[in-house]
Amino acid sequence: MTAATLDAFLNSYAGTESPIRAAVAETVRQLVQAATTVRGTINQGVLGHAFAGTRGSANAGGDEQKDLDVFADDIFLTAIRHAPVALYASEELDQPVLLDAAAPLAIAIDPLDGSSNIDVNVSIGTIFSLLPATGAPDQNPAASFFQAGSNQLAAGFFIYGPQFALVLTLGSGTHIFVPSPRLGTFVQAYESRAIPERTQEFAINAANYRHWDEAVRLYVDDCLEGSEGPREKDFNMRWIASLVADCYRILMRGGVYLYPGDRRKGYGHGRLRLVYEANPIALLVEQAGGVATDTLGRILEIVPHSLHQRTPLVFGSEREVQRIGRYHTDPSSIGERAPLFGNRGLFRA
């Protein structure tokens, strides 16, 4: 059976009656062209002009910019100028760029997620969110991005790894497309991914253990105690430090991802950006049957108050994410938690 092409998928979605759907489909096509260019540059590695190193400057979120970050942003912005998009908001830019005030869409994008992994040949990616442009884009460009993630019309990411892939949701399932050299286009590799409800794998940066809140420490302690502990099963721990790579793994085989807020300066409200990282990932995960929270509440219900707002993020297999929430609200009811903080963790002296 021949796999569906991305063009056929987008044509079926757009139909003939919905201008907004047609606009979404055309924007995804422009994103694919840009991502293909970025992928080609990444494949050149240090032989390419975009691998010169860091720029000695920081992006809007305060992270160090690398040449490839800025290159990717320029490529995507150029492509989106040819799409029906009113506003372009990026991790690399302080404020949104007004493109066409009459266009129906706004795009929020992380042009190169996981850029700390650029020089070590680990999977990196591009994350994007498509929203309806609201109000008067030419008078208040940021306003379109201050709406809950549940309003997203589409979301996805490109992953530049051993496989080049597009993970996409248009609001009905999470689908994965890969390029076919034979057909010269993307084809559907996985239709409507389903994240298992249960898991025995979690992803977190354990180096920050001493900075975590007690609830997060307790959860990780219980996982690490394995079959002898209150969870009564053995867990594996994974951490790639690339959001797209961790999310792709969870879409493929389940798991849970944690990037909580902690006691480090600037990390109290989490580190990932709500508008162009957490929201699109949350929509993809929910459309695959998973759950995404800020440890307590649903990510997609948060109304942003700033473009580069940060948030804690927990996502993945439904039962595990819900369990992590209970560690924050009522941990004494979980397993053998009695008294609450009587447990000595494996990392403690």
Rank of each mutant, 00 (worst) to 15 (best):
residue 303 V to W: 06
residue 7 D to Y: 07
residue 242 S to E: 08
residue 132 P to G: 13
residue 246 D to Y: 03
residue 248 Y to S: 14
residue 12 S to K: 15
residue 151 N to I: 00
residue 178 V to G: 04
residue 210 R to F: 07
residue 303 V to E: 15
residue 30 Q to P: 00
residue 345 G to P: 09
residue 302 I to G: 03
residue 42 I to F: 03
residue 29 R to M: 07
residue 80 I to Q: 03
residue 276 Y to T: 07
residue 152 Q to D: 09
residue 141 P to Q: 00
residue 39 R to F: 07
residue 187 V to W: 06
residue 223 C to E: 12
residue 306 S to P: 03
residue 335 G to N: 15
residue 143 A to S: 14
residue 243 L to W: 00
residue 171 G to S: 02
residue 25 A to F: 06
residue 71 F to H: 12
residue 246 D to W: 03
residue 157 F to Q: 08
residue 13 Y to P: 00
residue 257 Y to L: 10
residue 171 G to F: 05
residue 200 Q to C: 08
residue 19 P to K: 10
residue 339 P to V: 13
residue 174 T to C: 13
residue 121 N to H: 13
residue 217 R to F: 10
residue 329 T to S: 14
residue 43 N to W: 02
residue 70 V to I: 14
residue 165 A to V: 08
residue 36 T to N: 14
residue 72 A to Q: 03
residue 156 G to V: 13
residue 318 E to C: 01
residue 104 P to M: 01
residue 217 R to P: 04
residue 23 A to M: 05
residue 7 D to V: 06
residue 159 I to K: 07
residue 137 P to A: 09
residue 105 L to W: 04
residue 48 G to A: 02
residue 286 E to Y: 00
residue 330 D to A: 15
residue 187 V to P: 07
residue 71 F to T: 07
residue 198 R to N: 11
residue 184 G to R: 06
residue 266 G to H: 13
residue 19 P to H: 02
residue 206 A to E: 14
residue 199 T to F: 09
residue 81 R to W: 02
residue 235 F to G: 05
residue 348 R to I: 04
residue 243 L to R: 08
residue 75 I to D: 01
residue 218 L to H: 09
residue 223 C to D: 04
residue 74 D to G: 06
residue 267 Y to S: 11
residue 321 V to P: 13
residue 250 I to H: 01
residue 250 I to S: 04
residue 201 E to M: 13
residue 79 A to R: 02
residue 136 A to E: 13
residue 1 M to L: 11
residue 141 P to N: 03
residue 107 I to K: 03
residue 275 V to G: 10
residue 292 A to N: 14
residue 90 S to W: 04
residue 267 Y to P: 00
residue 320 E to T: 15
residue 13 Y to V: 01
residue 48 G to F: 05
residue 189 A to R: 12
residue 326 R to S: 12
residue 128 F to L: 05
residue 126 T to C: 11
residue 75 I to L: 09
residue 221 D to N: 15
residue 235 F to H: 07
residue 268 G to Y: 07
residue 103 A to G: 12
residue 17 E to G: 10
residue 34 A to K: 01
residue 338 A to Y: 10
residue 43 N to G: 13
residue 249 R to H: 05
residue 222 D to M: 11
residue 76 F to P: 03
residue 135 G to E: 09
residue 137 P to D: 05
residue 321 V to H: 11
residue 43 N to T: 11
residue 311 T to K: 01
residue 30 Q to S: 08
residue 36 T to C: 12
residue 142 A to D: 14
residue 310 R to H: 06
